[in-house]
Structures are given as C-alpha cells and as structure tokens.
C-alpha cells in the first residue's frame, strides 16, 4: 500500500491528522481571541482591525482555505475513528467505573459536535451576516455595532458563552492529548504538557467569553 494511504488509514495516523489539524485551528484561535479583545480598546480600534484584515484579502482567503480544510479533515477523522471504536465494543459492560477518566476526555465527541453546530451558526451570524436584518444598515466594517446589537440579546450572549465553555473543555483535553499523539513527550516536560491543555483552554475560554459577557452586562460604551 502507498505509504500516505497506510499512514492516514491507520488508527495512529488518523489520530495524528486530528492532532495536526487541531493544532492549526488552535493557532487560529489564539490569533482570533487576541483580535476580539480589541473590543475593549474601543469601537475605532476594533473597526480599524476589521478593515485592516480585509485589506489583506488574498492572504485572508488563504488562511480561510487552510482553516476550512483543517476543520473538514478534523471532523472526518473524528467521525471515522469514533465509528471504528464504537464497533470495537459491541457489547457494553453492565457496570464500568470511569471515575478515573476525566470528563473532558470522555466528552470530546459531544463537545466537538456542539462546536460544529456553533461554528456554522457563528459564520452565518458574524461572517455572512444572515441572522440579523439590522446589520444591513450598518457600515461594512462596523464590527463594534454588530457586536453591540447581538450581545445585548442575553439569549445570544449565553449561547456564545456556553459554546465557548464547551470549546474550553474540548481544548483542555485536546491540547494535552495532541502532544501525546504526536509522540512529543519527555519526563522533563510532561508536567508542563499536562497543565498546558487546561491552562490554555481556560485562557481562551475567558478571552472569548469576556466579549459577550461585557456587552450583555452593558460594560462597554
């Protein structure tokens, strides 16, 4: 068999694909959260940032294509591996003690599927602007007003905050797991790697949820 085919169809290689695509999406998220936090610097700053991004349109599309490919591969690999593993235990235990297994690691498929739904809504909402007719009257780069209109609706703000909480759970396990999957471990750094997932997950969670929370509580002018 061709070596690429063998690698990607093996359980180990398929998981490596998830780790690599997960890492690509993680780097994107780190940039994304930094951009979002510019909201706190005021309307002018975040709107200028939005305009700035669109000035690099070809680069932006390159990035978007990379992300889309990563996302699709990540989800396909997740579904394939999960199906194979379900088949690996056709008869369930009457009793199974999972107390030693972290909640985050057990709920990766659930948190992933909620993320899938959230990401589709999120793109329709703020990228393609299909959900709020009020956006039509706004200037193309008036991100600030868009956010204000959206997150003054508590239901929408909560939807975002809960989705971000699930992202936090997904990444708390995912980031630490990624190192193990890629074979990056060493007794000297294992403690650090174990903390990195929950720490980075929490930071991203706080960063992302701060925007809808602040706007819902009318803390921004």
């Amino acid at each position: 068999m061709n070596w690429v085919g063998r690698l990607l169809t093996s359980s180990v290689g398929c998981k490596v694909l998830m780790a690599v695509t997960g890492a690509i999406m993680l780097f994107f998220l780190l940039g994304h959260v930094a951009g979002n936090l510019l909201v706190f610097a005021g309307a002018d700053v975040i709107n200028a940032y939005a305009r700035g991004l669109r000035d690099y349109l070809p680069l932006l599309w390159l990035l978007r294509a990379g992300l889309l490919i990563s996302f699709v591969l990540h989800v396909i690999a997740a579904i394939r591996l999960t199906r194979l593993s379900r088949r690996a235990r056709p008869v369930a235990y009457q009793k199974q003690d999972l107390s030693g297994v972290s909640l985050n690691s057990r709920t990766m498929v659930l948190s992933g599927l909620v993320l899938l739904a959230f990401i589709i809504y999120h793109l329709a909402h703020l990228t393609f602007r299909l959900t709020h007719p009020a956006f039509a009257s706004l200037d193309d780069y008036d991100v600030y007003s868009m956010l204000q209109i959206s997150f003054q609706q508590p239901l929408l703000a909560f939807t975002y905050i809960i989705s971000v909480a699930l992202l936090m759970m997904h990444l708390s396990h995912g980031i630490t797991s990624l190192f193990q999957t890629l074979g990056l471990n060493h007794t000297q750094y294992n403690g650090l790697i174990r903390c990195l997932g929950p720490a980075l997950g929490l930071l991203l969670g706080l960063g992302f949820s701060s925007v809808p929370l602040a706007i819902m509580l009318r803390l921004l002018p």
């Binding site: 359980s11 180990v12 398929c14 998981k15 591996l81 194979l84 593993s85 088949r87 690996a88 235990r89 999972l98 030693g100 297994v101 972290s102 690691s105 057990r106 990766m108 396990h173 630490t176 797991s177 193990q180 999957t181």
Partner: peptide, 11 residues
C-alpha cells in the same frame, strides 16, 4: 483485529 483507537484518557 478490530481494536479501537487511543483517545489518551489514560484509563
């Protein structure tokens, strides 16, 4: 042999 994949839960 039909074993599943590793999700690094450490069970």
């Amino acid at each position: 042999e039909g074993f599943g994949h590793c999700t690094n839960t450490s069970a």
